[in-house]
Structures are given as C-alpha cells and as structure tokens.
Write a protein that binds this DNA or RNA. Structure first.
Length: 291
DNA sequence: CTCTGCCGCGAAACCTAC
DNA sequence: GTAGGTTTCGCGGCAGAG
C-alpha cells in the first residue's frame, strides 16, 4: 500500500476517518468519512461557533492544529511594522500574543486561536515591483502596482479571519483557502493521477506526484492550467463544466449552498436548459393525453 | 472599477521507509 | 538519523462577476 494514503497520526481527525480502510481507487475521487456525514449535511451549531470543543469537531480541530495553526501566526507575523525587515527577508515566526486572542472577540473562535503554533510559514516575497512602485504597505513595506492588490494584501494583516471552517473553526482570509482547507476534513480529492489513480486535494500535489513518481512533467498552456475543475464539495463529484456541476447539485443536493451562490444569470440560463426539455416533454405528453 | 473566487507557487510540517 | 514523498496553507496574480 502506498504510504501516501496511510493514516496520518498527527491528525486525530484523520484517524477517525479511517482512510486506510479504503483502497486507493476508492479514495481517488472522493471519500466522505462516515463520521463526517452529518457534518456535511448539516454542520452542528457547536462546531460552527466554538471550533468544536467536543465531539468529532474537536478531533478535526486538533487535526488542523498541528498542521495549520499558522494562519493567524503567519499572517499576523507581518503585522509588526516591518520597517527594519526588508521585504525579501524571511519573516520570523512570531510568538502568540495576547492581543491576538483579544482580537477574536468574546464568542470568537478561540479554539482556533488557542491551538499551539506548530507551523511557522516563512515566505520570501518581494511584492510586485515591476514598474514604478506606488502602493506601499505601511505594515510590512511591501509594494504593489495596484491599489486593489494592496487592499487585498492588507487583509492578511487582519487578525480576524472572515472565513471560518465549520469543522474546526480555523479562519481564513480567502474563501478558496477555506474551501481548500475543508477538503482536508471531507476527504474530497478532486485531482486524480491517471497513472496510479491516487488522488490529491490540490493540483500542485498531483503535479508534484506525477513529476517525482512517474517522471511526468505537466505541460499546461496557461489557459488550460486555469481550466476550472468543477467539484461538488458535498460529495466530491467532479464535472467538466459548471453546467454539469449545477445539474448534479440540483438533483443530488437541492439544498446545497452552491445553488444559492450560483449567479442568478447562470442559474437562470441553466434552469432554462433544465426546464425547456421538461416543458417539451410535458407539452408532448399533454398533447398525447389529449389524443 | 472594485470585489471576490480561483489558481499556482513555494515552503514548512509531516509521515514512512530505510 | 536521513531521505524522499505527501499534506497543508500563506499569499500574490489573474480573471470574472457585479
């Protein structure tokens, strides 16, 4: 059995999932742990609010704790006015500060904040300084070509995360970061290796695997690389198009938030496509009935 | 034009085999 | 202990939606 799918001991939540009970090919597309079934359909309130102080959520919480508690520490590390620290030098891991906890508020996700800092992301970035640099971050000194880039960058200095994981309470600045993180709880692995059928949560993991194990260097055109893989986060179903995914979710998960989030324009478009054949059928049947 | 979602890159943390 | 592979996530760039 490939070690890649062995149970990760560091994560109690993972052990609950019993990954090793499934053959690789079963895990390939998706594996929704039984223990998470209820969470997927309707995450319990206590998980949402307190970061899972009990039950399965707590295990998931600690699951993230060892590996990912750095989101606050990492992003806050730059929070120090980095006048002396050049933007190209590594950020020193910053010890947790009391202010950091205070920033969460009374019913904030303390569980997430209280997790021990195990990771210290050290990132070497120079910002974007191609042209005449106009927009500087006062907190870390990074410079950006566009104001909107600076605006977005400023979020990472914010200690209050807008997007919270319903499983473990961990917060993220970006919805996609949260979505990506949630896959670690749900076990959804949309990216499959064509050679050995192993599956990965992220494309770059798959690419790394292909390169190292199979010696395959993926050669994507830029547009092709950005081709979206439409993943149902409820069950792991993947479709080639948004329409495909919409049809799936509409039939399989009528209450899914995906349907609510789908733009009205697209939803209307897809609904027309959905209903028009039905209407044709119904009118046909009506006509047949009349006969 | 701004906001937001999605993406890949890159690096640390982690795990297992040897 | 070390090597090699995987997992996870911060973050800047890009593009579409509003």
């Amino acid at each position: 059995m490939p070690k890649v799918f062995l149970v990760k001991r560091r994560s109690p939540g993972v052990s609950v999932r019993s990954w090793d009970e499934l053959p690789d090919d079963k895990r390939a597309d998706t594996y929704i742990p039984v223990s998470l079934g209820c969470l997927l359909s309707d995450p319990p309130e206590d998980c949402r609010s307190d970061g899972g102080s009990s039950s399965g959520c707590s295990s998931s919480s600690s699951s993230s704790s060892s590996s990912s508690s750095s989101s606050s520490s990492s992003s806050s590390s730059a929070g120090e006015p980095g006048g002396t620290e050049s933007s190209s030098s590594p950020r020193a891991p910053e010890p947790e500060t009391p202010e950091l906890h205070d920033a969460e508020g009374p019913d904030g996700h303390l569980a997430a904040m209280q997790r021990p800092v195990a990771r210290s992301k050290i990132k070497y970035t120079t910002g974007t300084c191609n042209d005449s640099v106009i927009h500087n971050c006062e907190l870390c000194g990074k410079s950006f070509r566009l104001q909107r880039m600076l605006n977005r960058h400023l979020k990472c200095h914010n200690q209050v995360k807008r997007h919270l994981c319903t499983f473990c309470g961990k917060g993220f600045n970006d919805t996609f970061d949260l979505k990506r993180h949630v896959r670690t709880h749900t076990g959804i692995r949309p990216y499959k290796c064509d050679v050995c059928y192993k599956a990965f949560t992220q494309r770059c993991s798959l690419e790394s695997h292909l390169k190292k194990i199979h010696g395959v260097q993926q050669q994507y055109a830029y547009k092709q690389r950005r081709d979206k893989l439409y993943v149902c986060e409820d069950c792991g179903y993947t479709g080639p198009t948004q329409e495909d995914l919409y049809l799936h979710v509409n039939s399989a998960h009528p209450g899914s938030t995906f349907l609510k989030k789908t733009s009205k324009k697209l939803a209307a478009l897809l609904q027309n496509k959905l209903t028009s054949p039905l209407q044709e059928n119904s009118t046909l049947s009506e006509e047949e009935d009349k006969k």
